[in-house]
């Protein structure tokens, strides 16, 4: 009964309060947000200019730079989402703010999962237009344009949406250097899981890549990989990982004390 009541209190959602939280998040550090934007535009324009010096630039130049910008800036932004809780006084202020736990978490997700990718798309469309106009077209260099609705663009955004939840979690858990700590933790965790999966599959099919004879996969092994392992990995990545990280962000914030 008590647990039920506790959970109900955590799940209160008032849209007006939520939007106010979103607005306040943007208000927190307008200077730093502006600086990050300028930095992002500057870096990308600089990269485009450098690339225009090359007579045969990578035709997928924009996609590569979009991916890099989305991931690096996005993960940085996500890892700073709860940065106002990095000091005792800031944590006290934020935890005492009259809004539910759900509203506080959702307000961060709205910024990092919706506002940021949209902003990145708009920014990159502008950057690509400017770069084409000033750097590539004058030199008659042919380069693929940036398609904000392209398949790969959306695949990159989907990957960002899945992975940024881990950085949001790191922002709640760690007070300082969240991006470094969470990157290291994710790397170690993902590496361990991959290693264990490799050993597990090896033990099932009785092969040893290092010392055994050359490995020639049987049809049953190929089927196992294609119909069991790959769909499971996809399910874990696209469905379980984002939901799990969102739930953990919610629970970690709920349990947060001074």
């Amino acid at each position: 009964m008590y647990k039920h009541k506790l959970m109900k209190n955590q799940l209160i959602l008032n849209p007006r309060r939520l939007m106010r939280l979103v607005g306040n998040n943007l208000n927190f550090s307008p200077k730093s947000i502006g600086l990050v934007l300028l930095f992002g535009i500057g870096i990308n324009l600089g990269a485009a200019w450098m690339s225009s010096m090359d007579s045969t630039p990578d035709p997928e130049f924009y996609l590569i730079w979009f991916g890099l910008s989305l991931f690096i800036t996005g993960f940085l932004f996500s890892s700073f989402a709860f940065n106002n809780m990095s000091t005792d006084a800031g944590r006290q202020f934020y935890l005492s703010l009259p809004a539910s736990n759900l509203e506080k978490v959702l307000s961060k997700y709205l910024l990092t999962a919706i506002a940021f990718p949209l902003l990145a798309l708009v920014m990159f469309t502008i950057i690509a237009t400017l770069s084409n106009l000033f750097f590539f077209q004058p030199k008659m260099i042919q380069i693929d344009g940036f398609d904000p609705f392209g398949t790969i663009t959306w695949l990159l955004i989907k990957i960002y949406l899945v992975l940024h939840g881990i950085y949001l979690l790191g922002s709640v858990v760690y007070s300082k250097l969240a991006i470094i700590k969470i990157s290291l933790a994710t790397f170690v965790f993902a590496g361990s899981i991959a290693g264990l999966t490799f050993l597990f599959i090896g033990s099932i099919f009785g092969f040893d890549f290092q010392d055994g004879p050359p490995f020639e996969p049987t049809q049953s092994f190929k089927d196992f990989l294609e119909f069991r392992v790959w769909p499971t990995i996809q399910f874990l990545f696209w469905a379980v990982l984002p939901v799990l990280s969102a739930v953990l962000v919610f629970l970690k914030l709920k349990e947060k004390e001074l």
């Binding site: 506790l6 209190n9 955590q10 208000n27 927190f28 000091t87 006084a89 009259p98 539910s100």
Partner: peptide, 25 residues
């Protein structure tokens, strides 16, 4: 129950700690 941190509770209790945080506003 304070640990619930219900929004109505939080708006009815104001805590001013010794070290205070103020936003850049």
């Amino acid at each position: 129950t304070p640990s619930d941190r219900h929004p109505d509770f939080l708006s009815d209790v104001f805590f001013m700690p010794e070290e205070i945080y103020v936003p850049d506003l």
